[in-house]
């Protein structure tokens, strides 16, 4: 038999390398380059302009606030739902299917759907008015009610993107043999103890994937926020959009993009480190 030719594996991955290079690496390098150049060479001017902008610190604060509230809530909700779904005998696929419907809806459409519910003439106000709880339309999404707006965005994000965490966690739960939980039960562990001492530690790899995915996406949150609050609730990705389109300043927009990427990378690194499973602890 002739020696196996060594170029075949490289040939096989070449298309994806080219694809990645052309559509991902090149724009990435260009963006980084763009953010660090102004006039005729290397400069931090774009970053200085970004940081000096009125909305900048607000956007940073809002983005982190949203992420810190939404992601943990989503994980807790998804854990609870996943535990319940895996306990179902009948109708499990149907329940899972219904729960994942929001995944198929684009984030802008989701934002608009919630806008229809919550705007001045929306369904919520109509319902509250019909019940006699309010005298006239109440503005939930205005600059005067920042907490109501924040709450509405959190709600919409929970509705829209919890299912992706759910799907990952259900897949992870199904990988854990039921004997571990059974053994714990035999030796006296109550349901909550079993969950904390057995299920959760064994679910760590899936939790890690779900957290990385959700956190990165949360730092990029834009369409839902924009649909519900416009610039009343500035976030980082929204500012990038404004600088790119309204201000036509690509350099500052690129600086925002690089900042979001840096934050995402840092968060990913933290998760990889804090939630790592040592190889000897794998089942």
């Amino acid at each position: 038999m002739p020696a196996r030719t060594s170029w075949i594996p490289y040939a096989l991955i070449a298309p994806s390398v080219v694809f990645l290079g052309a559509l991902f690496l090149v724009p990435l390098v260009q963006t980084i380059w763009l953010s660090f150049s102004a006039g005729d060479g290397f400069s931090l001017e774009n970053y200085q302009r970004m940081a000096g902008d009125l909305n900048f610190s607000l956007a940073v604060r809002n983005t982190f606030l949203l992420t810190l509230v939404v992601v943990p809530l989503q994980v807790v909700l998804a854990l609870a739902m996943a535990t319940m779904v895996t306990k179902l005998d009948k109708g499990r696929d149907l329940v899972l299917w219904v729960l994942t419907i929001p995944l198929g809806i684009s984030d802008l459409a989701a934002g608009l759907a919630w806008l229809a519910l919550l705007q001045n003439t929306g369904y919520l106000n109509s319902a509250l008015y019909a019940l006699g709880l309010i005298q006239g339309p109440v503005g939930w999404l205005s600059q005067e009610t920042p907490w109501a707006l924040f709450f509405a965005i959190v709600l919409a994000e929970l509705w829209r993107a919890t299912a992706i965490v759910l799907v990952i966690l259900i897949a992870g739960l199904q990988l854990i043999p039921k004997e571990f939980s059974e053994a714990a039960e035999i030796f006296g562990a109550k349901p909550w103890t079993r969950f904390m001492r057995i299920t959760l530690p064994l679910l760590k790899p899936s939790l890690q994937s779900a957290l990385i995915l959700r956190t990165v996406l949360a730092f990029e949150v834009f369409a839902v926020v924009y649909a519900l609050g416009g610039r009343n609730f500035p976030v980082l990705a929204g500012e990038a959009y404004v600088w790119q389109n309204d201000n036509q300043n690509y350099g500052v927009a690129a600086a925002y993009a690089v900042l979001i990427m840096a934050i995402s990378l840092a968060a990913t690194a933290v998760y990889l480190r804090v939630l790592r499973t040592r190889p000897e602890q794998l089942p």
């Binding site: 004997e179 571990f180 039960e185 035999i186 006296g188 562990a189 064994l202």
Partner: peptide
């Protein structure tokens, strides 16, 4: 009764030793 209330111990056929 739930298993933990039956006052017994068990060795599983596939061990079920906790990996973590």
């Amino acid at each position: 009764l739930a298993p933990r209330k039956r006052g017994l111990a068990m060795v599983f056929q596939n061990y079920a030793v906790f990996p973590h």
